[in-house]
């Protein structure tokens, strides 16, 4: 029995290699890591630059980050972008020039900020209470997001591509007459996908968080990655065994990607309030993944019970699907 299971594992592994599954995973790993390290880490929004035109040097106590310009035209040009602020101190009372950015509160903020640049007082620095600096936060955030999307796609698509190939080759028909258990047929694929996903999660985390921070979050991340990977792979198994061809399957995937993962992304990334989002099952998986990266307190037992339950249900569904397909194939 054990021998036949290992034979199954070996066969599925060869199938994964031949479908360039690992090559694609390594490709995405490199692509994501490059994007994170070269682009995303540097994403920032600078404070409004303040330009000062002061030919007579009447203003004292000017803070060091104010940029001096030497003609009214230069000042006008500098503050036309709707972001910079100009101060014209050439005629007695200083005049603050702001091109509206269309958001009145932000205009107001820019105006007050310009005032502060003209006053001599010092400000009490804000107290920092969070554990991360901006770069580390960016790294944790984007790595969590990429991992979530990659796992949601890879388990689902990878298993499907394997299964469709097998369907085409008539493997399922052969298995209907072999003495291999149906559970083992599903499990061998699942185990391979799970290990590939865990490896991917570990590499992505270590590459982008650095070794020390990466190792710190890894245990929690791997638990969440495992849950997500199992759920998506099982769902992939069920849909690919029920749908007739890969094309229809990729249509389903497109719908899934647009309508299921996008709201989750919006809610997680922008903090936009959506009250219905808590009824979205994927949102909880995403939140758990993000919490794992930020080492936030673990979710309650309901979450894990729900995950186990859905994994079990999906397994039953996958078995049922396989059963039906075998009957259909005769």
């Amino acid at each position: 029995m054990r021998g036949s299971f290992f034979a199954l594992l070996k066969k599925d592994f060869r199938l994964m290699v031949s479908s360039k599954f690992f090559l694609l995973a390594i490709g995405s790993l490199i692509l994501y890591s490059c994007y994170i390290n070269l682009v995303y880490v540097k994403v920032d929004q600078e404070i409004f630059p303040v330009y000062l035109y002061d030919p007579e040097q009447v203003q004292e106590n000017i803070s060091a980050d104010v940029i001096s310009v030497y003609s009214p035209e230069e000042l006008q040009n500098a503050c036309e972008d709707g972001y910079s602020i100009g101060i014209d101190a050439s005629k007695g009372t200083p005049r603050i020039i702001i091109a509206s950015c269309g958001i009145s509160r932000l205009d107001e903020m820019r105006h007050s900020y310009a005032l502060s640049k003209l006053s001599s007082g010092n400000s009490r620095k804000a107290k920092i209470i969070g554990p991360n600096d901006k770069e580390m936060k960016n790294r944790r955030e984007i790595t969590a997001e990429f991992l979530f999307f990659e796992l949601a796609a890879v388990g689902f698509l990878g298993l499907a591509s394997m299964l469709f190939k097998e369907k085409q080759m008539g493997v399922i028909r052969v298995h209907a007459v072999l003495s291999v258990q149906k559970g083992a047929f599903i499990l061998s694929k699942l185990i391979l996908i799970l290990f590939a996903d865990l490896l991917f999660a570990a590499l992505l985390t270590l590459c982008n968080l650095g070794v020390s921070a990466g190792v710190e979050v890894l245990p929690k991340v791997l638990v969440q990655a495992g849950i997500l990977s199992m759920i998506m792979a099982m769902a992939g198994f069920f849909f690919s065994i029920t749908l007739p061809d890969f094309k229809q399957f990729s249509l389903l995937y497109l719908v899934l990607a647009v309508f299921i993962t996008t709201p989750v992304f919006l809610a997680g990334q922008t903090g936009v309030e959506m009250s219905w989002i808590k009824f979205h099952p994927m949102y909880h998986l995403f939140a758990a993944m993000k919490n794992a990266y930020f080492q936030a307190p673990v979710k309650n037992g309901f979450y894990y019970a729900g995950c186990l339950m859905s994994i079990f249900l999906l397994f039953l569904l996958a078995r049922y699907g396989l059963d039906r397909e075998m009957k259909r194939e005769g």
Binding site: D44, Q45, E46, I47, F48, M109, S112, Y113, L115, S116, S119, G121, N122, S123, R124, K125, A126, K127, I128, I129, G130, P131, N132, D133, K134, M136, K137, N138
Partner: peptide, 24 residues
């Protein structure tokens, strides 16, 4: 003012100057 330390630079500067803005 309290901030978490992971803000974009714009918000970090606003947080640091807000008490002064309030004073003036």
């Amino acid at each position: 003012v309290l901030r978490s330390g992971d803000e974009l630079q714009m918000y970090a500067v606003i947080a640091d100057t807000l008490p002064l803005l309030y004073a003036v």
